[in-house]
Lab assay of single mutants.
Amino acid sequence: MQRVNMIMAESPGLITICLLGYLLSAECTVFLDHENANKILNRPKRYNSGKLEEFVQGNLERECMEEKCSFEEAREVFENTERTTEFWKQYVDGDQCESNPCLNGGSCKDDINSYECWCPFGFEGKNCELDVTCNIKNGRCEQFCKNSADNKVVCSCTEGYRLAENQKSCEPAVPFPCGRVSVSQTSKLTRAETVFPDVDYVNSTEAETILDNITQSTQSFNDFTRVVGGEDAKPGQFPWQVVLNGKVDAFCGGSIVNEKWIVTAAHCVETGVKITVVAGEHNIEETEHTEQKRNVIRIIPHHNYNAAINKYNHDIALLELDEPLVLNSYVTPICIADKEYTNIFLKFGSGYVSGWGRVFHKGRSALVLQYLRVPLVDRATCLRSTKFTIYNNMFCAGFHEGGRDSCQGDSGGPHVTEVEGTSFLTGIISWGEECAMKGKYGIYTKVSRYVNWIKEKTKLT
């Protein structure tokens, strides 16, 4: 034993070699072989497995989906700052455009905790909710729209109204504003409101030439003092309507412009014939205590009207009353817009006519005020429907199939267009061939041609 100890002390290297040989010859039971080890760690190889990531292109799944990435790591994937920024906006807080917040056709661009709407022409605001041009839906104005110097929408209202708090709607500024039905039992019968379409306001006024200088022999019209197929109006439903009495009662109609003036057809009036105007009328054979009678003290036909040349060209006249009318729910003026808007309103496509005229061709006159909704007829169809001249200051309205029309005794009465609950004068009943005849239409004086003249002559002093 002493000898062994001496050998170990003198030859430590020998001992180490012996131990190493023993270990190498022993069977290893701690580690699995290569094949079995792979069965336990069965993990798919990654895209760049075996390579240094710093030297390969980034992978979106590896960089940002398996674990949260930084902007720089995302930049490695896209290799483009702009594309990385677009991805980053949604990656950080989701897609803010998912709810489609942009209105009126706006395009949404996502941002971090926010979004941006790219608005089409005519709109602005956070969600493109603000109209900035009158060309689109009248700028959301209830009545009139004008573009300011910086191309912003400025709404306005006709006389007797003021802008509401929203700067879009119009509200009454006087007790009985024009064009409004205020009798409670008839307010439910107000005709369907007309909503502004998209309009090209630059070209809204037709490029028409008034044929002022045409000389033409007097034409022989049949029954051209021209509501057939209409309905009984309720008291106060058309408070701007008046009836004219002269040699015979209810020979023509008219509309209240203001307390002192009536507008009617020029062919209705004769110099030297006494005319009485009755406002607030409903049943011409009954006294309903809503009527107001006034005498006409002055007749002003349009300066281009000449019955000797043509009885229905420039067929418009103004009547001055001896005493002002007292405005109330049964006696209310009709609204008159400017030339541009009167023309736009007419193009809405349908209007209402009213009167006490004959209820059928050569038949009896109506006792109760009649009204009828009539569609506008395109000019080409209008011209083809008659052998008589249709001037540019006239328009056609009615039904091709016949059966409904204005008729004798309705002449001078109103053709009105309702705009968001307020009625505007767009025409004056003038003439036609018979009444409600198939293929024939009622012919009306186009008020847009005469609004400046009306307003100039009827100013209240």
Rank of each mutant, 00 (worst) to 15 (best):
T417A: 05
T85N: 08
L325R: 00
V451Q: 03
V273A: 03
L211G: 13
E340G: 15
N343L: 04
K51I: 07
C335M: 00
G442D: 03
Y444L: 06
L376S: 05
C117K: 02
D150P: 09
E456M: 09
D378T: 05
E116T: 15
N258T: 05
C18R: 02
E323M: 10
L41K: 06
D110T: 15
K109Y: 05
G413I: 14
D232L: 08
I429S: 14
D405P: 12
I136D: 15
L19H: 02
D131Y: 11
P175R: 11
Q370W: 03
L41G: 12
W431G: 10
V248A: 04
E142W: 04
S329W: 05
C141W: 00
S448E: 09
N113M: 09
P239V: 00
L376F: 11
E82G: 15
E259C: 03
R364V: 15
T133I: 14
K188V: 11
K137S: 14
G21R: 04
C69W: 03
N147G: 14
S169C: 04
I136C: 04
A279N: 02
W88D: 15
G398R: 05
Q216W: 08
V269T: 04
Q370L: 03
P177L: 01
E61W: 06
R364N: 15
E288I: 05
I210V: 11
D223I: 10
I7G: 14
H400A: 15
G272N: 03
T342V: 03
R46T: 10
L383Q: 12
V202I: 12
C435Q: 03
G122I: 02
S25L: 14
G13A: 12
G402P: 10
V56Q: 13
K293M: 06
T218E: 09
P177G: 03
N328L: 00
I443N: 00
V416I: 08
L189M: 08
Q90H: 13
P324G: 04
E142K: 07
V257M: 03
D410V: 13
T381Q: 14
F424M: 00
I7R: 15
E193M: 12
L20F: 12
V368P: 10
H289M: 14
V331F: 00
P177S: 05
N127V: 08
K440I: 03
I136K: 14
Q90K: 12
E98V: 08
H361W: 06
H302R: 02
L460D: 12
V416Y: 10
G349I: 02
L346A: 04
A26L: 04
M394W: 07
D405L: 14
D322A: 05
I40M: 15
N203H: 08
M394N: 11
T209N: 10
E193T: 08
N328S: 13
I309V: 13
C435L: 03
Q167D: 10
P177M: 01
A307Y: 09
P101Y: 04
T445I: 07
R162M: 11
E193N: 13
A308E: 13
D232K: 12
L24P: 02
L327H: 03
L211N: 09
H302G: 02
D212E: 11
Y444D: 01
I40K: 06
G50K: 09
N80L: 04
T386I: 11
S70A: 14
N393W: 06
A26E: 00
E171K: 10
C382P: 02
C128L: 02
L319H: 00
V368A: 11
F345M: 09
L23P: 01
R83Q: 14
V153M: 15
A436Q: 14
Y341M: 15
F395M: 02
G105E: 07
V174C: 04
R226A: 06
R294C: 01
I429C: 06
C102S: 00
K126R: 13
A9P: 14
T16K: 07
T287C: 07
N147V: 10
K362Y: 07
C335F: 00
L383R: 14
V419Y: 14
L244Q: 00
G21K: 03
Y444S: 01
T461C: 08
I15A: 06
D378C: 03
P175M: 10
E124Y: 13
I17H: 02
N42C: 04
K51H: 11
F123H: 12
N313P: 03
H34R: 12
L52P: 15
R191Y: 10
I429M: 14
A380I: 10
V248N: 05
E79Q: 15
A279F: 02
Q219A: 15
L19R: 02
C382W: 02
F388N: 12
S182R: 09
I443M: 07
V227D: 13
I316E: 00
G254D: 00
T218P: 14
Q143I: 01
T209L: 11
T422L: 05
I316F: 01
G230Q: 07
G357L: 07
Q237W: 09
D110P: 15
W431Y: 14
V374S: 04
E86C: 04
I309Y: 06
L321V: 09
A436E: 14
L19G: 01
V174I: 09
G363R: 05
C178G: 01
S204C: 05
R384P: 09
L32I: 13
C108L: 02
T16W: 12
E79V: 15
V416P: 01
N313C: 06
D33N: 08
K234E: 13
P12K: 14
T287L: 13
I300S: 03
Q241E: 03
F31C: 09
T81W: 06
E129I: 03
W261I: 02
R379M: 14
N59F: 06
F399Q: 11
Q90I: 11
D322E: 06
V77L: 12
H361G: 08
V263P: 00
F238L: 05
R140C: 06
V269S: 03
E259L: 03
D111N: 15
E418V: 08
P333C: 01
D198E: 13
G58R: 10
I443C: 03
L372P: 03
G403L: 09
C141M: 00
A436W: 07
S25P: 07
V199S: 08
T276G: 05
T81G: 13
N283M: 10
E320K: 03
E288K: 06
S350V: 08
K455E: 05
S406D: 15
A380T: 10
L367C: 07
E270N: 04
S148P: 09
K438D: 15
K68S: 07
E124H: 14
K362E: 10
I300K: 03
Q2Y: 13
M394E: 02
G229C: 10
T386Y: 13
N5F: 13
E259M: 05
K39Y: 05
L369M: 15
S255N: 03
R358H: 15
H289Q: 07
C157W: 01
A250D: 05
E285K: 10
K109F: 07
Q237A: 07
C170D: 00
N203Q: 06
G432P: 12
S220P: 12
N48C: 05
E320P: 00
F121H: 14
C128S: 02
T290F: 07
Q96M: 14
N104T: 02
T386E: 07
A337D: 01
V77W: 08
S217A: 08
D338C: 06
E420V: 11
S114Q: 13
R83G: 14
E340V: 14
N59M: 05
G412H: 05
I136H: 14
Y341K: 08
S49Q: 15
G403Q: 09
T158N: 06
Q370V: 03
F238Y: 03
V416H: 05
T85I: 08
E10D: 09
V183H: 08
C18G: 05
R162I: 09
P375A: 14
R358M: 10
S220W: 07
F395W: 01
R298H: 06
E270A: 04
K234F: 12
L346K: 03
K446M: 07
F87E: 13
